Computed example of a mutant assay.
Amino acid sequence: MTETRTRPEGPSAGVVGPLAPAVRRRRSIPVGSAGLPLLGLAIALTCWWLVTTGFGLVHPAALPPPQAVGTSLVETGDVLVPALGITTLMTVVGFLLSAVAGVLIGIALAASRHLERMFAPLLVAVNAVPKIALGPLLVVSFGWGAKPILTMVFLLCFFPIVLSTATGLTTTPADLAELARSLHASWWQSFRKVRFPAALPQVFVGLKVAMPLAAIGAVIGEFYSDQPGLGYQILQYNGVGETATAWAAIVLIAAMSIGLYSALYLVERLALPWVRATTSAR
C-alpha cells in the first residue's frame, strides 16, 4: 500500500524540519509588533503611578503622577498642540538638513583618504563640544528665530550620519567590489550601482541614531529662542511651578520622537526591501 502525501501550500510550502516553526513564528510578528509596544507603555505607566501615587516615593513637585499630567495635557492642549507643531517642524527641517550634509560629507571622506585625515579630527572635536553651552552663543550669532534651533539640531545630528555613511562606503563587500572591477565599471558606475546601495543599511543606522538627537537639539535650541515650541513651554510652565504641564510637554516630545523614528523605520523598510530578505531575522 502506498501512502499519499499532500504537498503543503502557501509561504511554508517545502519548508520542513527546524525551519517550519520559524515560518510559523514569522506570521505572528505583526500581532506582536502592535501589542508589545502597548504592553510596554502600560507597564511604564503602571511603574510611574506606583512611584508617584502608589508608594509615594517621589514628591509630586518633582514628578507629578500620570493622571495629573494627563489632566494638564487636556487643559492646556490649546497651547501645547501648536507648540508641538513648531517643535516637530524644527526637528524635521533640521534633521533633513543634517541628513543631506552628513551624507555628502561622509561621501567626501570615503572618497579621499587625504580628506579623511585632514577633517576627521575636526569633526570629532566639533562633536565633542557640549552643545548646550553653544545655545546662548548661537542666539548672539544668528539672532532670534529659527536659525539657532536649526543650527543646534544640525550640530547634534550630523556626526553619526557622517560616520555611518563613511563606514558604509569604505566597507563594501569584497565580492561586489571585485564584480565591479571585473566589469570595468567607472568610479561613478561603481559608486552608483555597488558602493552606495551596499552602504545604505549603514546610512540608515546613522539616520536612526540621529533622529532622537534631532528632537533633543530642537528642544535645547528652544530653551534659548523666542519660538514658542515645547522647549519654550517647558521653561515657562516650570518657572511658574506648573510642573505637571511641563511634564505634559515632555510626554509630547517623547511621543513626537517615537512617531518620527517609526516613520523613518518605515522609509527604511520601503527603500531597502532586500535587506530583510538577505539577513537573518530575529
Rank of each mutant, 00 (worst) to 15 (best):
G143K: 06
T53V: 10
F154A: 01
L41E: 08
V58N: 08
G35W: 14
A111R: 08
E3R: 09
A214P: 05
P136C: 08
L183W: 08
T243G: 08
I253L: 13
P201C: 02
R7V: 12
T52G: 04
L84P: 02
V100C: 10
G40E: 06
G77N: 12
G35Q: 06
V203C: 04
F119K: 00
P30E: 09
G206V: 00
I234G: 01
R269D: 09
G206C: 00
A34C: 03
L200F: 04
V240L: 10
Y237M: 07
V15T: 13
M90N: 11
L97M: 15
Q236V: 13
V209H: 02
I29V: 15
A174F: 10
H114C: 08
L19M: 07
F55E: 06
E9D: 11
G259E: 05
E222A: 03
G10V: 10
V219Q: 00
T88F: 09
P21E: 06
V58A: 04
D78P: 04
L150I: 13
S186W: 09
A61L: 13
Q233T: 08
P66Y: 08
L63P: 05
A62L: 15
M152E: 00
A20W: 10
R25K: 09
R5S: 11
L138T: 01
L155E: 00
C47G: 12
T52S: 13
V69E: 00
A22I: 13
Q233K: 14
L38V: 12
T171Q: 14
F142L: 11
T279E: 10
R7E: 14
R276V: 09
A254C: 14
L179N: 10
E3K: 07
A255G: 14
R195P: 07
D226R: 12
V58W: 02
A215D: 02
I220N: 01
E178Q: 15
V92K: 07
Q67M: 11
L45Q: 11
P201L: 03
L176K: 12
V209N: 03
A254L: 09
R25I: 07
V162S: 02
A281I: 11
L38D: 07
L235T: 11
L57W: 15
T88H: 03
A249L: 01
R181V: 10
P30L: 05
I234M: 12
R7S: 11
T151S: 12
L41N: 08
A198W: 02
A120E: 11
G145M: 08
K147D: 09
P197I: 01
V92W: 05
R113I: 03
A83S: 13
P160T: 07
A13T: 08
L183R: 12
N127W: 10
W274Q: 06
S186A: 06
A254M: 08
T245K: 03
V51F: 10
P136L: 04
F223W: 15
A218W: 00
P64E: 05
